[in-house]
Design a protein around this nucleic acid. Structure first.
Length: 497
RNA sequence: GCCCCCAUCGUCUAGUGGCCCAGGACGUGGCCCUCUCAAGGCCAAAACGAGGAUUCGAAUUCCUCUGGGGGCACCA
């Protein structure tokens, strides 16, 4: 087991506050959390907001909320502080500037005065010649004096990384092994913008080093710039963290990643790519965690049900799978059902309540507690609760008269059956299972009808639904008065046909 | 166009040279249970992308092709 030899890991989740937390990010955060907790290390939350133009108001808070809802608490972060702060990149400008200067002094970076307009032209021509698009090196070898003069003259400039032009670079990813690229295909990436702000590449490397990050776990969209990041660490002479590039999540069709259009379609079907939406769609955080944990990671041949605690114990980096995974929402529904059924009754009752409230049904705690055991295996999502069990909380229900007619019988004949039921129930002391079910079974025997026919009528009469929790258990909870009243109403309705 | 990554049932995956004419899960079909609907139980159909090479032996190693994905910003 890999964990036996592991040192405490310091792992960071580093979202940019440009939108809500989505499934891919949630899974990265989950793995970060698991590794930190498993090794007794720290889970760090760092906000990558160096580009303020892309900042979205409220996004940061939403990300915090989603993470906490899933049970992923962090040890260091912008809101909880920590020994290596600040944890927002926008508050670390001076730090990056210092390291950028250091890189220039070491000859590993250079000041560049090229205009974006000229660079665009260069790129287009390179593409025409079927060359990899890259910086053409114009400012690579300016003298220190010339640079100083132009800077002093107020000329706009950026700082670029001085990429080696010959040879190759080999970087190591934990799940893919060594990756070797020809240096001539690499670019002299910009490290610091003309407004003095560091770009992600520099900022992340500096932060990861300063924050003593041991494992960088991130999506494989970072693979193309991976050599750059590795090279920045090496340029400073820093020890590199373990690099782990996770597989991408593909849309359910398996063709490409999620787009806005797909998201709209999903919501229509009751799904979402955003953690924020999933709660009100009736998903349990436990189900989300279990489901996404298994997209790109596996434990063994037959274990698939995991709590967050289980995962902390069982997770291991060496069981990660590098291939892209298409999102499978039907399996998500399956896991949701599994976790709903695994919930203690009191907890299920508590969590169902808001879903009734959302439909304007004031569900009381005592009844909630009683219906929980009989609805639990019928809920695919928590949002199914009001539709399935709303009738428990209503004074009256209004069945469609025609639905009360027993199959293969006339309305008049059905009314007769209903009358007999009323008479029988009225005579009973209560609606307990043991009290009510035997006489009704007897009625079925005597009438020559099938159980489904008689109970079907009762179900419609009492619940106004074709689908409901078990009839007699339901009657016991509703109580004699309401049951009898609803059956009488059924007789009326049938007689009116 | 250039660079990089990936490749087992429809989907998520197990599998690290013989235990695999490939195992599990979701979904699908059938049966059982049954007051509806579920849940549960049993059964079934369903995959190693193609071609070479290495080897006594390849899903597992190597090469080529094909396919899929990602990236190519003074975004992250």
């Amino acid at each position: 087991m890999a964990s036996s030899s592991s040192q405490p890991a310091r792992v960071r989740f580093a979202p940019s506050p440009t939108g809500n937390l989505h499934l891919g990010g949630a899974r990265t955060a989950l793995y970060d959390f698991l590794l930190a907790r498993q090794t007794g290390g720290q889970f760090i939350l760092r906000i990558e907001d160096s580009d303020r133009r892309r900042f979205v108001e409220g996004a940061e808070e939403e990300i915090f909320k989603s993470l906490r809802w899933m049970g992923l608490d962090w040890d260091e972060g912008p809101d909880v502080g920590g020994p290596y702060g600040p944890y927002r990149q926008s508050e670390r400008k001076e730090i990056y500037q210092h390291y950028a200067d250091q890189l220039i002094e070491m000859g590993k970076a250079f000041t560049c005065f090229c205009t974006p307009e000229r660079l665009d032209l260069v790129r287009t021509e390179q593409q025409k010649r079927k060359e990899p698009p890259h910086y053409d090196g114009t400012c690579r070898n300016l003298t220190a004096e010339e640079v100083k003069a132009r800077v002093d003259a107020g000329e706009k400039h950026v700082i670029r990384f001085k990429m080696p032009v010959t040879g190759s670079t080999t970087v190591r990813d934990l799940l893919r092994g060594d990756i070797t690229v020809e240096n001539r295909t690499l670019d002299d990436y910009i490290l610091v913008r003309s407004d003095g702000l560091a770009l992600y590449h520099l900022a992340a490397a500096v932060d990861d080093h300063l924050m003593k990050i041991t494992h960088v776990i991130r999506g494989s969209e970072w693979l193309p710039t991976f050599p750059l990041h590795s090279l920045i660490h090496r340029a400073f002479g820093w020890e590199e963290p373990e690099w782990v590039h996770l597989s991408l999540f593909l849309k359910p069709s398996g063709k490409g990643k999620m787009s806005k259009r797909e998201r709209a379609e999903l919501v229509k079907d009751g799904y979402s790519f955003f953690i924020k939406d999933l709660e009100e769609l009736g998903y349990l955080p436990e189900a989300i965690v279990n489901w996404i944990a298994l997209m790109g990671w596996s434990y063994d041949d037959h274990t698939e049900f995991f709590s967050l605690r289980d995962l902390v114990e069982k997770f291991s980096l060496d069981k990660l799978n590098p291939s892209p995974a298409a999102i499978n929402y039907t399996k998500f529904d399956h896991f949701n059902g599994l976790h709903i059924r695994a919930l203690p009754v009191t907890e299920l009752a508590r969590r169902m309540k808001p879903f009734f409230l959302a439909k304007g049904i004031h569900a009381d705690d005592a009844t909630l507690l009683r219906i929980a055991p009989i609805v639990r295996e019928r809920l695919q999502g928590m949002d199914d609760a009001p539709e399935l069990a709303g009738f428990f909380f209503k004074e009256d229900v209004e069945p469609v008269a025609a639905d009360l007619v027993i199959k293969e019988l006339t309305p008049a004949e059905s009314a007769e059956v209903a009358k007999k039921i009323v008479k029988l129930l009225e005579a009973l002391p209560d609606m307990n299972l043991e009290t009510a079910e035997p006489p009704m079974r007897e009625l079925v025997e005597q009438s020559g009808l099938k159980a489904g026919q008689v109970f079907g009528l009762m179900r419609i009469a009492i619940t106004a639904q074709h689908v409901s929790p078990p009839l007699f258990e339901s009657m016991q909870i509703i109580g004699k008065d309401k049951v009898v009243a609803r059956m009488r109403r059924a007789v009326e309705l049938l007689s009116s046909l």
